[in-house]
Design a binder for these strands. Structure first.
Lengths: 326, 326
DNA sequence: CTAGGTGCAAATAATTTGCAGAGGC
DNA sequence: GCCTCTGCAAATTATTTGCACCTAG
């Protein structure tokens, strides 16, 4: 992923020459936001330079797409529009049929389902398009929307951090409770240590979140960009809930293992998608730590089973334990 | 929803004249399957009639779209394709970039998420497009696929029935178990009756499924068309699982209530989308019966709480019970 | 000097439209 | 006879291309 503008403009698809015209077009294009048609761009360019040909704009647009600077999107209008990919994660679109504006969002849950469908039909997917056509709030109610979209990389970071914070918060609660109900002192120590680590993660994430807020004071009021239910709902929160209903040490470990595995996947997946390099680093680092937690829990689980094996059988058949610990 | 071909061809958008040319074009179009471009259709028509103009085909295509006979789809090729909507539920597409064929599927889970996103952004959605671009199995491996797509209405019915059968099967198991563990004789009777009803549903659904198989002997081997995890996973199966872990009568009722509510919704939603009128009728009838079950369980639950209220408090705070029974 | 970049005009490609004639009710 | 359908050819729209010229490395 490219992160700076200068890097981007230096890119060439198959080797190319620097030229003032191309540079001029790219600059004007990158300065805009939203989805421009080729014609929109021609108009914009013409304001600064009369002697630019439509063909050059088309050629430059194609060049930008090849170089990964721009993405060609099709809103079914019979012509293409272009959006720059500079610090913009891939996303889906809500398209207003009335005002012809489009709004962006990302849904990991939809992405996951799309992947499932593709794999069920043995289709190797390279890209997917999700477009919701309809009427936007503004066009329906007539009043101004509360907040406009900001930079997508910031929104992505904001939402990913919110999810991460919720995850860590429930992780903290989970390990706290687990430590309290664990009778075995060695096991209790493990849970206490993990709780401490989750606490550290939590404060690091919160700090980062606040940094983002400083960059864009209105950030919190902007609409949700990243939709993702998988982490916040499915992980530690549910685990903590199950702890409350009463489990033995072994079951607590199994729940922890499942949670950490999900948590690790979450940080890895989202870390890779961050366009903001600092946020990316935090996420990837956490992904690694969560993996270590996971390994620790698995070791503990195995040790526990071994110790108990002499005395009594586990409550459930071995297969489920093996599955959880693989 | 129109169900017969004659009804369809009689449709007119804003009043129009019957004309042999239009009729001819519509007939040829409806005889095809897959996604035709305007040009494909012109070629097909020209085989029967040399004196048909491209403009007329375009005009007829537009007329069919307005009349709801055809749907205009955009695969980003720079031109539109058309598919007929006769006995074809709305669906999404997998598009092979190599052979340029497209395959259809439907995912309720994706649809639900799309609705959630739209509502979170206060966008009123009228339709949505989901397209997965990539390479199909045939193009990737070189060998022929095991089975080709059949009629979409049959596939929809097949998959909806499979889900319904799975749901009823786990419902049967759930009520059977619930009856076995319920101590209160009145409650036991309720569960036994419900188990009997689920058994009846099950045999009716299985019979219908077998009827479909007779219509298309290869039906079972065709790829999944309707993807839906909500019902089979989330409902009775999980409920039965929880019963196994031990619950009291009251909790069993609550689980039953949740399951029946989901089940009712499932039959209602899918019944409405059936293009096959017999299947539709079965589903809507079941939806109604499941609603009655739901009401019965709620009445039982309330009666039980009332009876117990004098003796002891329920295990969980009232709020969750009230929520489940509302 | 030379591979690309650029402008202009012409070409393409899908689709729409103006208009005059044809045909059903 | 009126109203709509139809064919034909021309128009429109978005995009691409051929070709001669220009310019940076």
């Amino acid at each position: 992923m490219t992160t700076t503008l200068s890097e981007l403009t230096r890119l060439k698809p198959t080797g190319g020459k620097r030229s003032s015209k191309r540079e001029q077009i790219v600059n004007v294009f990158l300065r805009q936001e939203g989805h421009l048609s080729a014609d929109d761009l021609v108009d914009l360019i013409r304001r600064e330079d009369q002697r630019i040909s439509r063909a050059t704009v088309y050629r430059t647009l194609q060049w930008m797409v090849d170089a990964g600077i721009a993405r060609k999107v099709d809103f079914g209008e019979g012509r293409f529009r272009f959006e720059h990919s500079y610090r913009q994660p891939r996303h889906f679109h809500l398209i207003c049929k009335t005002c012809h504006r489009s709004f962006e969002f990302l849904s990991s849950d939809i992405e996951a389902l799309v992947e499932e469908v593709a794999s069920a039909r043995s289709f190797s997917a390279s890209q997917s398009v999700v477009q919701i056509y309809g009427t936007c709030e503004e066009c329906r109610t007539g009043r101004q929307p509360s907040a406009v979209d900001g930079h997508k990389d910031l929104l992505f970071a904001r939402d990913a951090l919110r999810i991460a914070i919720a995850t860590e918060r429930s992780g903290l609660e989970f390990y706290g409770r687990a430590a309290r109900i664990t009778r075995d002192p060695r096991g209790r120590k493990v849970f206490e240590d993990l709780a401490k680590e989750e606490k550290e993660h939590l404060s690091k994430l919160t700090a980062r979140y606040n940094e983002l807020l400083q960059r864009d004071p209105q950030l919190e009021s902007r609409p949700t960009f990243l939709f993702f239910k998988g982490a916040a709902h499915g992980l530690f929160a549910e685990g903590a809930d199950r702890l409350a209903r009463g489990v033995n040490d072994q079951q607590a470990l199994l729940i922890g293992i499942r949670c950490e595995r999900g948590s690790h996947r979450f940080f890895k997946k989202y870390g890779e998608r961050f366009e903001d390099s600092e946020g990316k680093q935090i996420f990837l680092e956490f992904a690694d730590e969560e993996r270590q937690h996971l390994e620790l829990l698995i070791r503990e689980y195995r040790a526990l089973v071994k110790r108990q094996g002499h005395r009594r059988r586990p409550g459930r058949p071995g297969s489920s334990a093996a599955r959880a610990a693989r």
